[in-house]
Design a protein around this nucleic acid. Structure first.
Lengths: 240, 240
DNA sequence: CAGTGGTCTAGACCACTAC
DNA sequence: TAGTGGTCTAGACCACTGT
């Protein structure tokens, strides 16, 4: 059942097994899974190891615990929203659409005070400014304006923005992206943006500003996006 | 330093102490906090206990760990968004505004198929329908339309919607609210809603649909809100 | 009452980092 | 090599639930 010699930690192996058993219906929705002590015996591991597996599944929303009663299978979510920090590319793919992109602006400039503050820049620090139209199934979906500190990424050029920026940062630069703050608001489309998005005013748009942070808490990116309201809905999961 | 006789778990006491020391600046941003083994000695507890404290602070984004190096203080977030599942009342208060509310509709009806599906209802199950105008500092902020299954809450009336619905559910009904799925989109205001919100078309609005779930995964509430785009921005934190 | 999850101990070995 | 976080053990006592 478990491979204790495997480089994969035991608690992750147990997680996978439980996940699979839940999906197979071995444990129906609302039913109790075996108690921690029972799993301890079944897998011949310590209770803390079993607890680590279960804690992760509880955090993922697959299980819930009740003091003195047991651990139970939660009902699956109606809709599986794309949680976590994702790129436009990942986002569209998860919606079953084919993403593409057109670079319409690239320059190095001194940011205005909003951006400078959000990126925690010093006076005189410059940023890359990248402007792209984002397409889904070849139809315009959004305009994306990205600001990146030159200081942190000294050698970027137009080509850097063809592939996945996040992958480049995490693999080539060996930095860890950890989280983002997102601000969302509705508005009426401006004339210039209406042309780029191929819509006619008056029309509603969804404006999203994202500030992304590395694991050390430093911001590394500000993205301001303008989405066509008729084509884009944003879904999140919230925990109490 | 620690009160081991206290009913408050030791790992929470350690969490509080570390949090305080970070806020006091005892550990500057980016600096390492004492190692797990050092804290083990300092607090005279086991290492697993210290790890539980640190793990929680890492999940909160106050600290981050690096294998083989240590645990470090993350920079504080620029903006502290209100995370978690909150009511309109809590939301407005955290923005420093005074919330109020006007009930404009209350009835028991058979839901349309959208709502029935989202609440996982059987044929013929009925729902409460509650329509309220939500004010912030006495200015209209949003229209909120709430659907609750009668089956789960048999004895509600108009008065039930004066106070905090969430508090009532968690205290009186002894149910645990665990999470919600939120769908957000932009749109143009309809004539009827424009009057209620005291705005003139064409104007943008932010439409939010929230489906809230109990710990057992059962949905218990659908809320459809229409916010004035000129007054409301929505902020979230996202983790990678 | 027996069983459950919540907390906690006092060790251990590993892979990784920095010197 | 010494120190770090990551994983794991084999126990323990507690408060809480259901019978």
């Amino acid at each position: 059942m478990l491979d204790k010699q495997s480089p994969i930690p035991i608690y992750i192996q147990i997680e996978e097994q439980l996940k699979q058993q839940i999906q197979q219906g071995d444990f129906p929705i609302g039913a109790a899974i075996p108690s921690e002590r029972e799993l301890t015996e079944r897998f011949d591991v310590s209770r803390m190891t079993v607890r680590q597996s279960i804690t992760n599944l509880v955090n993922d929303g697959l299980l819930y615990r009740e003091k003195g009663r047991g651990t139970f299978v939660a009902s699956p979510k109606v809709e599986q929203p794309l949680n976590g920090l994702t790129s436009f590319t990942e986002d569209m793919q998860s919606r079953g659409m084919v993403p593409s992109s057109k670079l319409i602006g690239f320059e190095i400039l001194e940011p205005d005070s909003d951006i400078a503050e959000e990126l925690q820049l010093a006076d005189g620090d410059k940023v890359y400014f990248v402007e792209r139209i984002r397409f889904a199934d070849d139809k315009p979906m959004a305009i994306e304006r990205t600001y990146l500190p030159v200081g942190r990424f000294p050698n970027l050029n137009r080509d850097s923005f063809q592939g996945s920026l996040y992958a480049m940062i995490e693999n080539e630069q060996q930095l860890k992206i950890s989280r983002a703050t997102q601000r969302m608001e509705a508005g009426l489309v401006k004339k210039e943006d209406a042309d780029l998005l191929q819509i006619k005013p008056p029309a509603a748009i969804l404006m999203i500003e994202r500030i992304s942070y590395l694991a050390d808490g430093q911001p590394f990116e500000v993205v301001r996006s303008t989405y066509r309201a008729d084509r884009y809905k944003f879904t999140t999961d919230i925990k109490r």
